[in-house]
Design a protein around this nucleic acid. Structure first.
Lengths: 326, 326
DNA sequence: CCTCCAAGCTAAATCGTTTTAGCTGATGGA
DNA sequence: TCCATCAGCTAAAACGATTTAGCTTGGAGG
């Protein structure tokens, strides 16, 4: 339409008019015409030529889980600011799915991955590490693999919560955890165990591990035993899902909170606040975790060998469920 | 590596060996070598060549809202089965954002859009309709625009709930709605109003509209008035967010449910179930809405002029909060 | 008057596929 | 013996952009 070659148009529209000594008058006509016809470059062609896709992958266990959807929202917003598009997938805590999704996303040309690794994914993560593909672990990490990560300081989280319960006069404190080898859970367990031991309460350490995929029956069983046989006076749940399921069970068992037993949960939600005895919980700095992960990822993409590990500060939101005399 | 032309490799790997009369022996060698070298075609090049991106856009108001993240999960799974990738964005109920995101996604080459339109987006939707770009409205629709949609039967939803409350002996029933012109809300209001009128209770129709972006103060004010001045005996909330905020207010006001007032919410969540008086709510068939939207979209992409409007059945989950004598 | 240089532009290659047209050699029929 | 046919393959164009090398023109300098 302007009567010049595509090459010239490309140069002008990419702001390289000066660099290529394009005549001012011609450059102006090109820009004007481009605007008038609402020209938008074909990104696919651009990507093919440049080898860049401006795509990143976000693999979580389940995007319908509010924790991960909150993360996704922030990652997406930040990525968009940085001119990247996010592809989101869910693994359902399944290793085969995770492996498949990594392959699928790589094939789609993502330039980096934010990944919530599931149980048993150590080998996959090691492969990713060996390949030097820009990758950031989110929420969960492997202490033996030197990969970037953005996680909660899990040890401190349960340390904080246990100290709070001890401070309230609770001694016989139980923990409901997943049956897993994932380190974020192991750290949370250690934070609790160490704090109990340091307080001279080793005898009162109770850790119950439940099936991650169908936790409710295991939780019920554990709670029955802990309350009726072990006579615990406080229960800490290591994840939001465990806490929520636990509250259903405690209601069914007609256990009163905090009179019969104190409760501490993980990751607040409306159910915790609206509960008849609002639930004390460990708050993760979701914003920082999410933003940290995408910022690290983009840096890794732009500068190979960039690496960073974030362990972010938990916060204890103290409500009625953990206070002896509210 | 096999010593044949790229063309032949392409034919074989796309399963067109027979069609192009490729020798069996050669075809076998190509497949074998492709596997051995872990060949995966470059999707960007494929897309450029074919003009297809296998991308669809999903524009919701907020992906961190559990309703929409549940939708996103299902859409994503179904799209993946159909060999499409979903690009998700959030508008925050803002028209300018919506317009921008539509442009961004179109520029990224999505072949279709699933869209939750916000207040005031009628013109945008009309443009989309006029352009014949494959588009499906989700959750909300425009009766005057003949665009595909996948929504709840909103009228029936509140009709069902109002009838239930009337059946329980409640008469002075109030409604908390958004201050909006969006038809899904207007339909919900009509379902309530008509049912009240048909029962001869026009005098007891109370509709309060609150600000969609900062509803809590408005809700508090409305509730104070409805309960203390109008002496309503039941309150229906038109969305999950309204109901959740409403419960916070009712707790603050020390109103007992259902003794002082009955409550019906929208879209169940753990908070409703764990509430001291579990909340009766209208359940949307999320799975059907989500699956419906993506299935319609893909059909529209494959067959231009395909159109379909779904109005899916609500279900009332009756719990303690709406029963006079539980 | 010729040479040289710079300014301002274009042609062509390239990215990795797919598809169309066409080439080659063997076979069969007349 | 010669042509037609067909199986089995390849060359080349195309998708839409970017980039490199190179072309033309006019003016300055010798």
């Amino acid at each position: 339409m302007v009567g010049v070659s595509p090459a010239l148009v490309s140069m002008v529209l990419n702001g390289k008019a000066a660099q290529y000594r394009i005549g001012e008058e011609v450059a102006r006509r090109v820009v004007k015409t481009a605007n008038e016809m609402h020209y938008a470059p074909n990104l696919v062609a651009k990507n093919l030529r440049s080898g860049k896709t401006q795509l990143v992958g976000l693999i979580v266990t389940d995007i319908s889980n509010p924790f991960y959807s909150a993360i996704a929202r922030i990652v997406e917003d930040r990525a968009s600011e940085l001119n990247y598009t996010v592809l989101i997938s869910s693994t359902d805590e399944n290793l085969k799915n995770t492996e498949r999704l990594v392959d699928v996303l790589l094939n789609k040309g993502v330039e980096g991955l934010i990944l919530v690794p599931c149980d048993g994914s150590m080998k996959l993560i090691q492969r990713l590490y060996d390949s030097h593909f820009p990758t950031v672990l989110l929420d969960r990490y492997f202490p033996d693999i030197d990969l970037s990560s953005s996680c909660l300081d899990n040890y401190k989280a349960t340390e904080l919560a246990t100290e709070h319960l001890l401070g309230q006069g609770y001694k016989n404190i139980a923990l409901i955890a997943y049956n897993t080898e994932m380190h974020h859970i192991l750290d949370r367990i250690s934070g609790y165990e160490d704090t109990m031991k340091n307080a001279g309460l080793s005898a009162y350490v109770h850790v119950r591990k439940v099936n991650i995929l169908n936790p409710k029956p295991d939780i019920r069983e554990a709670l029955e035993e802990l309350i009726h046989s072990e006579h615990v006076d406080a229960i800490m749940f290591l994840t939001n899902m465990l806490a929520t399921n636990g509250l259903y069970c405690l209601n069914e068992m007609n256990v009163k909170i905090p009179d019969d037993v104190a409760v501490v949960g993980f990751n607040g939600n409306d159910a915790f606040h609206l509960f008849y005895s609002p639930i004390t919980y460990i708050r993760q700095p979701i914003e920082q975790i999410a933003k940290g992960s995408i910022d690290i990822l983009i840096k890794s993409i732009k500068k190979s060998n960039y690496k960073s590990k974030l362990f972010l500060e938990p916060e204890l939101v103290i409500q009625q469920s953990s206070q002896r005399h509210p």
